[in-house]
Deep mutational scan, measured.
Amino acid sequence: MGFKLLSKLLVYLTASIMAIASPLAFSVDSSGEYPTVSEIPVGEVRLYQIADGVWSHIATQSFDGAVYPSNGLIVRDGDELLLIDTAWGAKNTAALLAEIEKQIGLPVTRAVSTHFHDDRVGGVDVLRAAGVATYASPSTRRLAEVEGNEIPTHSLEGLSSSGDAVRFGPVELFYPGAAHSTDNLIVYVPSASVLYGGCAIYELSRTSAGNVADADLAEWPTSIERIQQHYPEAQFVIPGHGLPGGLDLLKHTTNVVKAHTNRSVVE
């Protein structure tokens, strides 16, 4: 069995187990497998329904001669939608809004960016022009300005110390501490036991640490421990890039980060 097929099978099995364990909360999309990078042309966006009122959005972007996937989250909030992270750029984010209108038909009224990198804030200006209120932590807003990236308009308070959590509509926002970046936030959907790890969490097929220019490698494993301790009931975990899975993604990420750190020390 090929690795790609095995990865998709694991996603399907995880979703099936969740649907059985929580039949009222989960209505997993039966329309197909989780979209992969090879299936999404740059400039297009796919939506994948995880649970009743919960979707991931998947886009792709060219970077350094390669094409990478990027995940975000959409959560229903009454007759409105909360968006977590842009679709990595203005063109993708405009396509995301169009796809949401086509498939869901509810307005996106608020959006949260989970850290300051372009795959999370690139497209904020498109959201703002569409009347979406954009939010991020003060740290993310400051770092985005320093980096020359787009800056969300509103500040999220109460997320300055490791372990801080605040309720934001249908989700809980959690600051686990520094990891992929010093400002990275985690998003949890309690009604569906869905954990969105953003770039602080890796997919299972990833074996290298990737972009760690703004990471705190020493603190990252401790931050992941905080996530595990705060959300032990999480059933569906979405990484910032690639295929979702279960809580095993947290341990896998820790292993990859520690291996990278150990290699760096040896070198």
Rank of each mutant, 00 (worst) to 15 (best):
E157C: 11
G210T: 04
P69Q: 09
R141A: 08
Q103W: 05
T14C: 07
L250S: 05
A178N: 15
L204F: 08
A133P: 07
Q49H: 07
H230S: 06
A178Y: 11
T207E: 12
Y231C: 09
S155Q: 05
S223D: 02
H241M: 01
V265M: 03
N211C: 11
H241A: 01
S30M: 15
G122A: 06
L204W: 10
Y188W: 12
S191I: 05
T109K: 08
P221W: 13
R206V: 09
H57W: 06
S193M: 04
L243G: 10
S160W: 10
T114H: 00
K8L: 14
T207R: 12
S62P: 07
H154M: 10
K8C: 08
S38E: 10
D77P: 01
V54I: 14
F26D: 15
G240A: 05
H241G: 01
A66V: 08
G2V: 13
D216F: 04
P170C: 04
P232E: 04
G158L: 05
S27W: 10
I58C: 06
I17P: 03
R76S: 03
D125C: 04
I74S: 11
I40F: 02
L5T: 14
T182W: 13
L106N: 06
V11S: 13
E101Q: 08
E267C: 14
G78M: 06
H252G: 09
D214I: 08
H252Q: 06
S22L: 14
Q235C: 02
R110Y: 04
P69N: 15
Q103G: 09
P190N: 03
G242C: 02
D64Q: 10
D214W: 09
A66R: 12
V126D: 04
A165K: 09
L5R: 13
L127P: 01
K251G: 09
L204P: 11
E33N: 04
A129W: 10
S162R: 08
L9W: 07
Y202E: 08
I20V: 10
A133Y: 09
Y135T: 04
V108Y: 09
V187T: 14
I151D: 02
S113C: 04
S22H: 14
G105S: 14
D164C: 08
N211R: 10
I100D: 00
V67D: 05
F174S: 11
S193N: 05
Y175W: 11
G131K: 14
S161C: 06
S161D: 09
T140K: 02
A98F: 05
V124M: 15
G2H: 14
L5D: 14
L143H: 09
I100T: 07
L127D: 00
L96H: 02
A95E: 07
V37S: 09
P170Q: 04
G177Y: 01
V146M: 12
D119K: 00
P138L: 11
G177V: 00
A98G: 04
G246H: 05
P35W: 11
A144F: 12
H241N: 01
L173D: 00
S155C: 14
H57R: 08
R206H: 15
E33Y: 03
A51G: 11
R46W: 09
G122M: 14
I151N: 04
S191E: 05
K251C: 03
T253F: 01
E219A: 12
K258P: 13
A130H: 15
N184S: 10
Y135W: 05
G210M: 07
P176L: 07
Y135R: 01
T60K: 12
L96I: 14
